[in-house]
Computed example of a mutant assay.
Amino acid sequence: MDETSNPISRSDEEWRSRLAPQEYAVLRQGATERPWSGDYVSTSTVGVYRCRACGAELFRSETKFDSHCGWPSFFEPSESEAVTLHEDSSMGMVRTEVRCARCDSHLGHVFHGEGYATPTDDRYCINSIALTLEEDSVA
């Protein structure tokens, strides 16, 4: 088993010491970065998107698409167990929150049935600051 698949739990103080203030606000407090401000909104780099907090693999570039929403969008996680989904009734609406299955960090939200020409018609709208991109190496 890959070490990034083992569940982890840290105290609030440990998370604060490991993450920059904006990273902490998004990953641990459920904040959202400003649209069009993240590093991965428009990137087409081939690779693996990992959780910034714990390094778990979450998404692959093959599932990333341009939804024109201001945040990186994916049509599915790299594995069905990579993320967990939770009802979020904040902000006066019901949405589906996406969290890292390994460390329970907030990643963004998933929206269903919006009519995108993808295999799943899902849009995982993920904060760039919640991710790191590990580029595929060319042999």
Rank of each mutant, 00 (worst) to 15 (best):
G115A: 13
H106P: 14
E97V: 02
V94T: 15
D104M: 09
M91C: 07
S105N: 05
C51N: 06
I126F: 02
A101K: 03
W71D: 00
A139L: 11
E97S: 07
S37F: 07
I126E: 01
H68F: 13
F74V: 09
R10H: 09
S5Q: 14
A130V: 00
S11W: 04
T96F: 01
T32P: 11
D39A: 15
H109T: 02
S11H: 04
C100P: 13
C54H: 05
Y124K: 00
S61M: 14
T132H: 13
S73N: 12
V98C: 01
T45P: 05
V48N: 08
S128K: 11
S42M: 08
S105G: 15
R50N: 13
P77K: 05
S137F: 08
I8F: 03
D12Y: 03
R52G: 06
T132E: 13
T63Y: 12
D2W: 09
C125F: 01
L27P: 11
L19Y: 08
F111P: 04
G55K: 12
A82Q: 04
R28K: 12
T118Q: 11
T4P: 00
T32D: 11
G55E: 07
V41Y: 12
P72S: 06
I8S: 08
E62L: 02
H68G: 15
R16I: 01
F111H: 08
V138R: 11
E87F: 00
F59W: 11
E97Y: 06
H109W: 04
V138G: 04
R99S: 05
G113M: 13
F59P: 14
D122Y: 09
E114I: 08
F75R: 02
G92N: 14
S17Y: 03
D121L: 03
E134Q: 13
E57K: 14
C125E: 02
C125Q: 02
S9F: 06
W71G: 05
S9E: 14
E81S: 15
P72V: 09
E79P: 01
R60F: 07
D122P: 00
E76D: 13
P119K: 11
L19G: 04
V110E: 00
A117G: 05
R18L: 15
H68N: 15
T132V: 13
P35M: 10
Q22L: 09
G115T: 11
T45I: 14
D66Q: 14
W36R: 12
E135C: 11
E79G: 08
C51P: 03
E62N: 02
M91N: 14
G47H: 08
G108E: 05
E3L: 12
E14C: 07
S42P: 01
S105P: 10
T96K: 01
E81C: 06
I126Q: 04
F65Y: 15
P77Q: 07
I126S: 00
C69S: 15
V110I: 12
S61G: 14
M93C: 03
P7G: 05
P119W: 10
E14W: 06
R18D: 10
T96P: 00
Y24G: 08
E79Y: 04
P21L: 10
C54T: 06
T63V: 07
E33F: 06
P72C: 07
C100D: 10
Q22T: 11
F75L: 08
H109R: 02
E14P: 01
G38E: 01
A101Q: 03
Q22W: 03
F75D: 15
A139N: 10
D136E: 14
Q22G: 00
S80I: 01
G55I: 13
S73W: 05
